[in-house]
Amino acid sequence: MSEQTLIKEYPGIISEIQKEIKRLENDVRVLNKLYVILDILHDVTVAEVMKKHDISQGTVYNWIREWNEGGMENLKRKSGSKGKSKLSEEQFKILDEIILNEELKTAKEVHKAIKDNFEVDYSIRQIERIMKKLDYSYTKPYKIYNKMPKDAKELLKKT
C-alpha cells in the first residue's frame, strides 16, 4: 500500500493556519461574551448564566462592566493589547539558525543566546513561547531521585 498525501503543503502554511486560528479564537471569545450579555438582557439570572456558560461570577460581572462602559466594541480585544515582539521576524529566523547551529536544548540556553546576540531580555516563560513559535518542542525536566530503585521503570510497568 502506498502512502498518500492527504494535505497539500506549501512553505508557511502552518504559520498561516495558526494565525487564522488565533483570529477565529478571538472572534469566538467575543461571541461568548455577547451570548452572556444577551442572556442578561433577557433577564436570565447571573447564577443561571454562570452555570449555562461555565464561567465565574467575576467574569460575568467583568463582561457586563465592559458592555456598560463601551458596548459591543468594548467587548472586543483592544488593538495593541498584545505586546509587540522585541525581536523582528528576521531576528527570529536568525535565532532559529542559532538554535540549530549551536544545538541549544533548554530555554535558559536560548535566553542567553538572545541576550548575547540581540541584547534583548525575555522571561524564561516567554522564551518557552518563542521556542514553541519556532516549532521546537519543550518539556519540563523531571527529577530522578537517587533513592529510586534501579528497576523502577519495570516496577512501574507491572503496576
Rank of each mutant, 00 (worst) to 15 (best):
100 L>P: 01
108 K>I: 03
124 I>C: 04
125 R>N: 13
119 E>M: 04
13 I>H: 04
69 E>D: 15
29 R>G: 05
140 K>G: 08
150 K>P: 01
135 D>W: 10
116 D>M: 05
133 K>G: 03
115 K>F: 02
16 E>M: 10
152 A>M: 08
64 I>P: 00
40 I>W: 10
154 E>N: 12
21 I>N: 12
106 T>C: 05
60 V>W: 00
69 E>F: 01
16 E>P: 00
24 L>N: 09
96 D>I: 10
49 V>G: 00
51 K>A: 15
123 S>R: 14
142 Y>Q: 07
157 K>A: 14
26 N>T: 11
155 L>V: 04
64 I>L: 13
137 S>T: 14
57 Q>A: 03
20 E>L: 03
84 K>C: 05
126 Q>T: 15
4 Q>V: 09
59 T>H: 06
63 W>R: 12
11 P>N: 03
92 F>T: 08
123 S>C: 06
115 K>M: 09
27 D>M: 14
138 Y>C: 15
95 L>T: 00
4 Q>W: 15
86 K>L: 06
31 L>A: 14
43 D>E: 14
157 K>S: 03
141 P>T: 15
144 I>Y: 11
139 T>L: 12
119 E>D: 13
87 L>S: 13
60 V>D: 00
146 N>E: 04
133 K>I: 04
142 Y>C: 01
84 K>D: 02
127 I>C: 01
113 A>M: 11
141 P>C: 03
129 R>F: 10
83 G>H: 08
50 M>E: 15
17 I>N: 02
129 R>C: 05
145 Y>P: 01
47 A>Y: 13
150 K>C: 04
15 S>M: 04
112 K>F: 04
19 K>I: 07
138 Y>A: 11
42 H>V: 10
98 I>H: 00
25 E>V: 01
10 Y>H: 14
56 S>M: 01
63 W>I: 02
39 D>I: 01
106 T>W: 07
48 E>G: 14
36 V>K: 09
153 K>G: 15
11 P>E: 05
111 H>W: 11
41 L>P: 00
8 K>S: 13
61 Y>M: 12
109 E>K: 01
125 R>Y: 14
110 V>D: 00
21 I>W: 05
35 Y>T: 01
80 G>Q: 03
87 L>K: 07
144 I>G: 11
5 T>D: 11
141 P>G: 07
3 E>Y: 02
31 L>T: 02
46 V>R: 09
6 L>M: 15
22 K>C: 05
17 I>G: 01
107 A>V: 15
107 A>D: 09
99 I>S: 00
116 D>Y: 06
3 E>G: 04
83 G>D: 11
156 L>C: 11
89 E>D: 06
158 K>P: 02
125 R>H: 09
